[in-house]
């Protein structure tokens, strides 16, 4: 049951993120971008952390408790920080576009490709 709900939420978050990216508003597109990241991180932790009943500490392991998967958590931990880095890069792009072209409407800046 909970798997279904998780999958449903991840799918909805992903769809909403993509929808924001497709719209014209660059500020909301940046937020959509961040929502995409959240959906992906949620997915990975959900896949990795389900089985365990306890946090992955040595003391828990020694007490014979079933812990969650530490490896995927370590990967997501760094991924969160790195995705924040790329998110700030996106914000930087929005910022510079608004400064140079005085717009945050993606339809207005289609000339950038040349």
């Amino acid at each position: 049951m909970i798997e279904l709900l998780f999958a449903l939420s991840i799918g909805m978050l992903f769809g909403i993120g993509v929808f924001q990216l497709l719209r014209r508003d660059l500020v909301k597109a940046a937020i959509g971008f961040a929502i995409l990241f959240s959906a992906i991180n949620l997915f990975f932790v959900a896949v990795g952390a389900f089985e365990g009943e306890f946090a992955p500490y040595v003391s828990n392991v020694e007490a014979g408790r079933q812990t969650s998967d530490p490896l995927i958590q370590a990967l997501i931990l760094t991924a969160i920080v790195v995705s924040f880095g790329s998110f700030s890069l996106v914000l930087g792009f929005v910022n510079i576009i608004s400064r140079r072209y005085d717009t945050v409407d993606s339809n207005d800046i289609n000339k950038l490709k040349h």
Partner: peptide, 28 residues
């Protein structure tokens, strides 16, 4: 339309992944 198609695809993908999530890797 595009977002719904993508959202549904991701939903199916995550559902299948979650239901068939692998046994914990030995390295963990």
């Amino acid at each position: 339309g595009i977002s719904i198609v993508i959202g549904v695809t991701v939903f199916l993908f995550s559902l299948i992944s979650l239901q068939n999530r692998p046994q914990r890797h030995s390295i963990a």
